[in-house]
């Protein structure tokens, strides 16, 4: 698991050239472009980026859950080698929850307020797995215990539980149909620090216990280190870097990744103010030519404005930046001309 790129096994999930557009007031806004990655069974991958960078859109596209005003305009997603019909709601249905499930960000809103939690956990077992009502309830009780909630609490309604408990319920629900992949879309963002740590620990434990592949979406690079094998950095709808956790933290290559890591609050430095990355990310309406990060990039070169840099294999991982690999002397002169 140390270096998944070199594993011979076929990936459980392969995303290739994924592109998503949002339609807004008649115009089509390119939101996700050229996102490609693979995930092995049991692997934990973080998808990190600022708010608005397209993490949720990417996740929803992979799970076939895009809203009506979004369209997959390119690429494909393969599950165990077979193409997923991510833009066809009816064809996607048999794949849902039993192959890929999602733990959504706000568990308060992601649970239906008028149904008991046990019923909401049991529901996909009945509908997707064809269990009887009693079997499904029994399964739901097991799942509650698995995430550290006593089965008796199953009679509670969502509003009767704390935020952390609700997120546990979401996790129990996500495991209902024994999926191979769980996407956690900022599963801990709304929680306090202690609860956040507990939930991440639970996810990590369940992942190894059930051999789950985990895509953990977060804007907070600091939560990634303990619970993920690999990190993918997203900026303005594109992946800009992909590498093992160790590599990314020890030797970040993309200037954006470097700045992200520098902006992590470091307890050893005391209460020193965290320096946020100066400038704002480009909006959907105004995507600049070339590299989207160049206006905020301390190392921007003239070539960065010409064409979008591709995400290329480099050393142990992948990076999309003209600094990597470093250009030869005469190329550089040309690029800067």
């Amino acid at each position: 698991m140390k270096n998944p790129c070199q594993q011979a096994k076929a990936p459980i999930l392969a995303v290739e050239g994924l592109a998503v557009d949002y339609r807004l007031r008649g115009s089509s806004l390119p939101t996700i472009r050229d996102v490609s990655f693979e995930i092995q069974a049991g692997e934990a991958v973080a998808l990190v980026g600022e708010s608005g960078s397209g993490k949720t859109t990417t996740a929803m596209a992979i799970a076939g859950l895009l809203p009506p005003n979004a369209a997959v305009s390119g690429g494909e997603v393969r599950y165990r080698g077979d193409r997923l019909p991510i833009d066809d709601d009816a064809a996607m249905r048999p794949h849902r929850w039993s192959e890929i499930s999602v733990v959504f960000q706000g568990a308060m809103n992601a649970l239906n307020p008028v149904h008991r939690i046990i019923k909401q956990i049991a529901e996909p077992c009945q509908l997707q797995l064809g269990m009887s009502r009693d079997e499904a309830i029994a399964r739901a009780r097991e799942l509650l215990e698995l995430v550290g909630i006593s089965a008796e609490r199953g009679r509670a309604y969502p509003h009767e539980l704390s935020g952390g408990m609700r997120q546990r319920v979401m996790i129990a629900m996500a495991l209902a149909c024994s999926p191979s992949i769980v996407i956690g879309d900022e599963p801990t963002t709304a929680l306090d620090v202690i609860t956040q740590a507990q939930i991440l620990k639970l996810l990590t434990a369940l992942r190894s216990q059930l051999n789950l592949a985990l895509i953990l979406i977060t804007h907070d690079l600091s939560v990634v280190a303990e619970c993920c094998d690999r990190v993918m950095i997203m900026y303005a709808g594109r992946l800009v870097e992909d590498g093992s956790v160790a590599d990314i933290f020890a030797n970040p290559k993309h200037p954006y990744t470097k700045l992200l890591i520098e902006s992590i609050p470091n307890p050893e430095h005391g209460k020193r103010m965290v320096r946020p990355i100066p400038g704002d990310p480009p909006t959907l309406q105004h995507r600049p030519s070339g590299c989207a990060f160049r206006s905020r990039c301390p190392s921007a070169m003239p070539v960065c404005a010409t064409e979008v840099p591709n995400l290329k294999r480099w050393e142990q991982g992948r990076v999309a930046c003209y600094l990597h690999p470093p250009m030869k002397h005469e190329e550089k002169a040309l690029a800067n001309a």
């Binding site: 859950l65 849902r96 992601a110 239906n112 307020p113 509908l127 629900m173």
Partner: peptide, 26 residues
């Protein structure tokens, strides 16, 4: 537009099941 409707969709419910089980009562 509520999140729990996305959850219902993610869980593999048909449109009719989403309406009757999750949307109607709310």
């Amino acid at each position: 537009t509520e999140d729990y409707m996305v959850t219902a969709r993610a869980k593999g419910l048909t449109s009719g099941q989403m309406l009757m089980r999750h949307a109607f009562r709310n």
